[in-house]
Design a protein around this nucleic acid. Structure first.
Lengths: 249, 249
DNA sequence: CGAATCCCGTACGCTTCCGTACTGAAATAA
DNA sequence: TTATTTCAGTACGGAAGCGTACGGGATTCG
């Protein structure tokens, strides 16, 4: 690991900005970065690590850099389904942006990785202080909301294969490799379908040369082909996020 | 119609506050009300009247007082499904709260009624000026977001009868009578199912004494029974809204 | 290295809901 | 009043996906 020249005029605790891979952190103004940086903490995010628990206070906001967070809505009878994913393009803890201190949903690392986090009070103070920072996180929250709406659409109207393709594409957008380290079981939980249904659908993908599968891992081979399977159920949240946040996903 | 004493010290264009039935307008501080009131316009909201068009600028924010708005997500292949409903508890135009000027979804009156509206620029100016007003509409936006997430859950996991019961309850919460003036066709569009499927399900409800049905109209008879049908797919967004906004729904 | 566990492949009967379509009754328009 | 349109009731074959379950291979644990 090399020492970054850009970090020389900052104190030891402040992470260097040049190697920040979270898009929100990278995109904000230097002033806003300066506001957050002293409170940011580098963190490893292991798979299945819980970042938010429903109806519990949010302790930290996580800026993911590698890996994927699943946000899962749960009801009283323990029915559950994923309502959104978060990766390097976004952040967790959107209720804080709305002035609430509690998590609505369950959120945990679906694919392990790393990132930075900030304690909730420091985050709230920062967005209270900087209108431009608040505007940025509001847009990010809106982008997430659009994703949730289209998840509702896909859940109600798309077939299993279409929804599975959509999920793979959303994960792929957030990963640096074509390999998705996940079991069929977890894909099934996220989509709210049978594990066996996922197995059959992935088989079909594999036979068509769209993916390669190994135990606990699958690799995208023909992304365009997967996009064709997902059809119009994939894409709108992605273009809307680009419109709202700028060209970087 | 009697002349309200409370209106005497306001100018002619300013609606009297006492008879405001929209919960958000009724709940805000006098200062925030004074900020909005001069720009509020009484309006009749006929059924099927369009209030937002996807990808088009939002012209007005609507504060519904009677009737119900459907917010419907649409994709490129014209698949569509309702992602939320808005009545007297809320407002349309949430993207404006996030700093965006465009509608994501289609929004129209599913059940006709009336309300007040304000031109988008005046609304944006007001929330820019008053932090307390901004906080209020942010919480309302969050409540809507929770509703959307649970719609995604219901779409993915609930059966037709459960989803239909959920919809009826959400509509009933927003109406002043037990009569829901809607055809099976429109219920089907909102739920993303067949019209014939809705007919059969409503029949079952009727046989069980939960509702009474006439052409283009159905009446809730046993709300508790309908709640039992919806099970845990109904309720969380409602209690969360109460928590966020205070005891009034 | 053997045992226990995890993950995937596959199967079968069953439920739910779709696509489609025809009918008659009710409401509306002429 | 008659014609037209809208809405609800019903039907049938079929697709999609569920619940369940069993076996075998891969991986991990002791």
């Amino acid at each position: 690991m090399t020492i970054e020249a850009g970090a020389t005029f900052m104190n030891d605790a402040t992470p260097a900005r040049d190697d920040v891979r979270n898009r929100l952190l990278a995109k904000m103004s230097v002033q806003d970065w300066a506001l957050l940086a002293p409170h940011l903490e580098d963190i490893t995010l292991k798979e299945r690590q819980v970042v938010e628990v429903p109806n519990k206070p949010i302790t930290h906001v996580y800026f993911v850099e590698t890996g994927v967070v699943s946000v899962v809505a749960v009801n009283a009878e323990d029915h559950r389904i994923e309502v959104g994913v978060i990766g390097k393009e976004g952040m967790t803890g959107t209720p804080l942006v709305f002035g609430d201190d509690r998590a609505q949903h369950s959120a945990y690392m679906q694919i392990g990785g790393s990132g930075k986090r900030i304690a909730a009070p420091a985050f709230v103070a920062a967005i209270g202080q900087s209108p431009s920072l608040r505007a940025l996180v509001l847009k990010s929250a809106q982008a997430f909301m659009i994703q949730t709406a289209h998840t509702a659409l896909a859940n109600g109207r798309a077939k299993l294969e279409e929804r599975l393709a959509r999920w793979l594409l959303m994960a792929h957008d957030r990963l640096d490799s074509d390999a998705v380290p996940l079991t069929h079981e977890f894909l099934a939980v996220m989509l709210g379908v049978r594990r066996a249904g996922v197995t059959v659908a992935l088989h079909s993908f594999e036979r068509r040369g769209l993916i390669a599968a190994r135990r606990g891992q699958l690799t995208l081979i023909n992304r365009t082909g997967i996009e064709e399977v997902a059809g119009s159920f994939y894409g709108i949240p992605e273009t809307e996020r680009k419109r709202l946040m700028g060209e970087t996903l």
